[in-house]
Design a protein around this nucleic acid. Structure first.
Length: 565
RNA sequence: CGCGAGGUAGAGCAGCCCGGUAGCUCGUCAGGCUCAUAACCUGAAGGUCGUUGGUUCAAAUCCUUCCCUCGCAACCA
């Protein structure tokens, strides 16, 4: 059995995940993991929170908490949100874990031993009142070029000039507001990327035919512009203390230990059941592992350049990314999501408004693959009303209600498959093959457009077969048609499970089944599946699968989530 | 001249790599059906494929000019 290692970019603990984060890495990784499991693959699906860095320190300070409790609290919050969205990760870990510390130290030692680490002294702004060095973005002041008063230390948003923090007039710390700043020298460790570059190029070239264009072109861009040594340590408190003499008062930069977190979290997972789990089977001298990573496009450089270079520099045989799914941005009603401006719908709120499957289906069938995509409530409602209610929900409803009222609450017996069913089987098999093909290629938009067409085939079939007419003349034939339709419900439930697990369960429940009854979908054969449910099996009509979203509700939502701003 | 991605019917997208009657979904209009969630099925209207020039028998597709949108620009996760 081939092994599939699936990782989602680790959400930063201090952030509040919005729909863009969900669709960028968390949801697609889950959908893919569920699909690969159903295909019979041995899947390990790893997610967790990325916890180190200034942002956490500042967040804790503002919340009046110590950093550890602050992170504990937020970790819990992330976990609950993702569970609510139905994410099926095998482990939800943390980059601040002991296991990750161990991994980070080991990888750093190897890099150092191989001569890829160098010391440099840099000048940095120190805030005397905050008692810390400030990252550029934590300094604001007046732009010397255009006079804009809220220019950041790295760049002026107004005139787009790239700045040094020392250029700013009346520079202030954004943390305390203090202007009691000075430039200090500080010694840091750098990862010598130019030295690893030849290895990296050699490795990357093998990926070109497989990666999506967005991901590969971003990686190429970085190589083209030339790699520079990258600072991997910081003057902070919250992080792993550097395990090198003379640097004990520094910590590793969050971007150094965050991707290593995939490995560290795998070890967390393994440590919970050491008899049956071994992290090395997935990461170290591992054979037959295909590693698929999911991330927003802003993360691509780190996963295609920095992290692979880090692993290559160890000289050890680490599992590298085989397929990198880079996803563009989801915008909100044409603008940016912004918590501070109360603009956009965030994951915790989204789940209170509608069931997870509504979001999962919308987001996956509109995932920003080729370019940035805008979320609008109008579009959302139209998809939910048309695809989920009109096409799928209504099909289930019309079939079960008709069978129940005309014949009874058992799958009806009698009749044989005919020419119409032959045609249905052929059409459906072709569509299912395409659906699987797109899923294998991680072409989600196309995959879910195909899934929708599969549902449509159900309505097409029942329209042509007209059981409501046939039943007046030939009850046996009508029974066969309805039995076929009930089997279609089962087939639709199975095929929809990766994207709408709860709805699938609901559909199967009506037929007295659960998802765990479903065998592998590898070699899914419609001709066989179409008769899987036998005559006499009891079923219940139950509730409707989905609810329509009326016009008034859309207007309310737009108002509530700042769609007009 | 910083870099990248995108600009295709009212809306959202596919097609572009490997040139050859412009396709899908929603919306609109008309018809059908009455089992079902004002649903479902069928059909029609609607596009000089951002702009300029070029290559070619032939360009949405290849090369070129300019314009617009979004993102990135390495101490922001």
């Amino acid at each position: 059995m081939s092994k599939t290692l699936i990782t989602s970019a680790l959400p930063y603990i201090n952030g509040v995940p919005h729909l863009g984060h969900m669709v960028g890495c968390l949801l697609p990784s889950d959908v893919y993991a569920r699909y690969m499991r159903m295909m019979g693959n041995d899947v390990l699906y790893i997610v967790g929170t990325d916890e180190h860095g200034t942002t956490s320190e500042v967040g804790a300070l503002k919340a009046g908490m110590d950093i550890q409790s602050y992170c504990d609290m937020n970790h819990e919050r992330h976990y609950n949100t993702y569970k609510d969205f139905g994410l099926s990760f095998d482990y939800f870990g943390r980059t601040s874990s002991e296991q990750n510390k161990e991994m980070t130290y080991h990888i750093f030692e190897q890099l150092d031993k191989n001569g890829y680490i160098e010391e440099r002294t840099v000048k940095q702004i120190y805030s005397i009142d905050d008692q810390m060095f400030l990252a550029d973005r934590y300094i604001t002041g007046t732009c010397p070029h255009c006079g804009y008063e809220k220019a950041r230390g790295d760049q002026c948003e107004n005139c787009t000039q790239v700045l040094e923090p020392t250029d700013l007039i009346n520079a202030k710390s954004t943390i305390s507001g203090s202007s009691n700043l000075e430039v200090r020298e500080t010694k840091h460790l750098f990862l010598n990327l130019p030295k690893i570059e030849p290895l990296l190029r050699q490795w990357l070239i093998t990926k070109e035919p497989f990666w999506p264009e967005v991901a590969y072109s971003i990686a190429q861009k970085w190589l083209k512009e030339g790699l520079q040594a990258r600072c991997i340590t910081r003057d902070l408190k919250w992080g792993f203390p550097v395990n090198k003499p003379g640097f004990e008062d520094k910590v590793f930069y969050v971007w150094f230990d965050a991707p290593i977190g995939y490995i560290g979290i795998t070890k967390q997972w393994a440590d919970e059941n050491p008899k049956n789990r071994n992290w090395k089977d997935w990461w170290y001298d591992a054979t037959n592992v295909r590693h698929v990573e999911f991330m927003g496009k802003d993360n691509v450089p780190y996963h295609s350049i920095t992290f692979p270079a880090t692993l290559l520099g160890t000289g050890e045989n680490w599992t590298q990314v085989d397929y990198l799914k880079g996803v563009s941005y989801l915008t909100f009603e044409g603008g940016k999501f912004s918590k501070s401006e109360n603009r956009g719908i965030f994951a915790e709120d989204a789940i209170k408004e509608f069931p997870a499957d509504y979001w999962r289906y919308w987001l996956m069938s509109n995932i920003p693959e080729a370019s940035d995509t805008s979320f609008t409530f109008d579009l959302f409602a139209s998809i939910i009303n048309k695809d989920l209610n009109g096409v799928l929900g209504n099909f289930v409803s019309r079939v079960l209600k008709m069978t129940s009222s005309k014949i009874g609450n058992e799958v009806p017996s009698g009749g044989n498959l005919g020419a119409l069913e032959e045609k249905l089987i052929t059409t459906l098999q072709a569509r299912v093959n395409d659906y699987f093909k797109y899923m294998n290629e991680l072409e989600f938009r196309k995959a879910f457009a195909e899934l929708r067409q599969i549902w449509v085939e159900g309505n097409n079939y029942i329209s042509e077969a007209e059981p409501w007419v046939v039943i007046k003349e030939d009850v046996e034939k009508a029974s066969q048609i309805l039995r076929t339709c009930i089997n279609l419900i089962r087939i639709f439930a199975i095929l929809s499970a990766p994207v709408m697990p709860t709805t699938s369960e609901k559909m199967l429940q009506k037929l007295g089944l659960t998802l765990s009854d479903i065998p592998s979908i590898k070699d899914f054969n419609i001709a066989q599946e179409i008769t899987a449910i036998k005559a006499g099996t009891p079923f219940e009509v139950g509730d409707m699968l989905f609810e329509r979203i009326p016009e008034e509700r859309i207007a309310e939502l737009k108002e509530k989530y700042g769609a007009s701003k």
